[in-house]
Amino acid sequence: MTLRIYAIAYLVFLYAPIILLPLFAFNDATIIAFPLSGFTTEWFQQLMTTQALHRAAQNSLFIAVLTALLSTILGVCAARAGAMYDFPLKRGILGLVMIPLVLPEIIVAVSLLVVAVQIFDVGLSNWTVIAAHVLICTPFSIAILNGAFQNLDPAMEEAAMDLGESRWSAFRLVTLPLVMPGIIASMLIAFTISLDEFIIAFFLTGANPTMPVYIWGLLRFPASLPVVMALGTILVALSIALLTCAELLRRRGMARVGLKDKGGFI
């Protein structure tokens, strides 16, 4: 019983900042502090008319969509290879691919910055951010897709090939439908991570900032804080919606390959 109370208190601790967000977003005062003074939707209206914000949002969406696609493709390759084939150095290679998960993000950021600017002299742009985001999102994609691929019976694809399908059409007609929920879950997670990522984007973003970099700029000006709260409320609501979809799909995928749900993405 005490454990349950502790666990619930812990959840409250986890959600404390997120619960405050909408309170201040609708609060009719320019200072972010209690007591609340009144209800307003002014901050949301300001969001609608800020051009710089719309550009940052477009950039972030572009980066997040491409990151989601690319990291999921790489994730499918790795998860499929891990589940279905044996090859030399398998454990080492699969371990290496997961390394960005534990690497300090600033290391990823500065090393890619040095390579992009000093060695290849390509200017910083959305593409440099995408390259880095694909790197850090791929391990998450692999972790999710492993769940989808692990209990897939390789015999099913072989049977399709024995019955005259090519290697690709066997994959497309047999395996792909079975792992589809996992693929979509992986894309949603990668999208969410990329949309929210700041530490790396701050180093690698070009002339047009991404959304978190734009927010970072706003945090310096006390007058713009209520607008940040409004923006944050929208972003949190969006992330929760996306993550809920990802979770539901992941569960459906597990059920589809006949796996008992062990819970959790990782």
């Binding site: 959840l11 900042p17 969410t192 929210d196 978190p212 949190v236 992330s239 929760i240 749900d261 819970g263």
Partner: peptide, 19 residues
């Protein structure tokens, strides 16, 4: 169990800067 784990991971993936 998976509901609990889901609830635990959600805040981790939302608006790091603003948190």
């Amino acid at each position: 169990k998976s509901l609990w784990l889901f609830l635990i991971t959600i805040p981790f993936w939302t608006s790091y800067l603003i948190r």
